[in-house]
Design a binder for these strands. Sequence first.
DNA 1: GGCAGCAATAGCGCTCACTC
DNA 2: GAGTGAGCGCTATTGCTGCC
Length: 289
Amino acid sequence: MNLWNKNQEKLFFTESLKLAKANHLFYLDEDGRHLAYWPKSYRGVKSTLQSRNSLIGNYTENWVKNLLKSLISDENLHVVNQARIPALGITSRSPADIVISTVDKKILKASEVKVIFEVKMSIVWNWQYDVESNEILEIGDYRTHQGKPSFTRSDSILKAIGKCIDIRVSNFKASKIPIIVLGNAPLSNGFCKKADYLKSAGIIQGFWSLNPFPLNHGNTRKTTPKSGFLRMDSSMELKIHLNRLFNQNLNFFSGMQDLESLGQYIEMADMEDNCKQKGLKFLNLLKRS
DNA sequence: GGCAGCAATAGCGCTCACTC
DNA sequence: GAGTGAGCGCTATTGCTGCC
């Protein structure tokens, strides 16, 4: 299965036109054109479309679900959307967009969850809908219109970070579950350092863009120095990173301790027999502090 | 069961501040 | 002046709750 591209967006509009009217999917400009976004050069009267929000949210979520399903060969793993994990405070009020779990159920135990994905994808290119011919034509990438894809918007990223931190601090049971934020555009420059820091700190294991070619001309950032942000260029590359996540036995830990206490924990942990036991002991000491 | 009210979520237009 | 980033606020949608 291909990663995100123009065809996916065209398909979104084609499919959505079966469910919604054109004026719920496109803006109508002063020249009578139906447009996905207001072009940068447009100076006429504008409105803000809201009716597309849930449609694009559902479409991208299902697209990610099918993509992940096509990449997972392990029969014991399942891709679940709108998952609830009560132990982590993830309820029906704010379910996890996508999770990979060991059981095919909507309500999951923390121990059944292998990875949590927060999906932040939106329409990247600008599109014009020709009512007469029923054709949808691409008229420019995200540099040519006034809208901004989620990954380039600070508030969208802050929202994602907030949700991830909310999960991280909900329960110690969340400490073994990697969290990935998925998008379809490059991360804005201001958040690249933060993405690396969030990865180093263990809060979010990555911001992954599933759109290899978000621009019609020119290139975009492939990765950040510490891989907090990654642009996947093929489904195989995505699969490699997914497998890496599954094979790592990750543990999130955090704290604010004075050096003396930390030194004592290290000394106590060092009394254990092997490295794994030492690590476990250290984490338990941190947990109890 | 049906309805209203409320809160949460989501995407995106808008404005302001800052930098070049 | 143009471009960019940050963040506020708007509104459609959805789900929950309480009331009748």
